[in-house]
Design a protein around this nucleic acid. Structure first.
Lengths: 141, 141
DNA sequence: AACCTTCTCCTACTCGAGTCGTAGAAGAGT
DNA sequence: ACTCTTCTACGACTCGAGTAGGAGAAGGTT
């Protein structure tokens, strides 16, 4: 066990934590990932507006601060303004979301989900996936 | 268009609607799916307790009624008690959840998710998926 | 100095999920 | 008739996500 057995979920400040985020919170993180760098509230706000998310400036600010309190975003000062940067990778958040879906609807089986997905792929997509499978098999021996 | 163009989301009563459900609401639905038939509050309650979900009887009752209002559950009277049955299939709800995940983290691409999943499969699982792919290809020609 | 503009801070409100308690109807049993 | 036990009907509370307004600090502009 690397993680303590079963602490009452402190939450006094941070740590990644696989806790699910709200849809809007995720929007903010995605905006930060897209920007690829620490950004000000304004930048995030504009980024969101550009991608069609009508939302007030202060709302972005509030959520960004809440995300910081949750450890999903890191804040640093730059002159008058604050800079916010994602503290969790898209990779990690995505992994969490996939894991939750798997646990909830597929008995935790990646195979089960994969199987269902295969039916939605067209010929070309199947080809590409095929190649990945071959590779996977290769690395596995 | 079978569904009206773009009504402001009535919600006065029902219709499947791909709206996401809360975790607990989903637990209830899953209990109903597991039971495979219309069940009373007691039955659902016990089913949940058995699967480790500590929750009060009235909580189950309340949520079941809310789910009915949302059209996810159908209610019928049986003597004194009410019977509740899932009004949405596990298939449909799962599809919705997968779709949302796809839209949010994979640009709507089933292939993208499938690709990531392949890396988590072991040899045997790959074999079985392989078979599905072959079948898919077959039916597609 | 007087003004804008840009930001931060803090406060505050809504809504829905989640959780129950209590009151009281309806039979079942005695 | 009285008493359990089982159910329903309501009302009520908490919490977090989502949303935003207003006050006021910090500088830049004239």
């Amino acid at each position: 066990m690397t993680t303590s057995s079963s602490a009452p979920t402190h939450h006094s400040g941070h740590q990644p934590s696989t806790e699910p985020l709200g849809d809007r919170e995720t929007d903010l993180l995605q905006a930060l990932w897209r920007l690829g760098r620490a950004a000000t509230v304004s930048e995030v706000h504009e980024s969101l507006l550009r991608s069609g998310h009508e939302v007030a400036y202060t709302t972005v600010q509030t959520m960004l601060n809440r995300l910081e309190k949750k450890g999903r975003v890191r804040r640093s000062k730059d002159g008058k303004a604050h800079l916010y940067a994602a503290a969790v990778s898209e990779e990690a958040v995505t992994r969490g979301a996939v894991g939750r879906l798997l646990g909830r609807f597929f008995g935790g089986s990646a195979e089960a989900l994969t199987s269902r997905l295969v039916g939605d792929l067209d010929a070309e997509e199947l080809d590409r996936v095929q190649r990945l499978i071959d590779e996977a098999r290769g690395n596995r021996s």
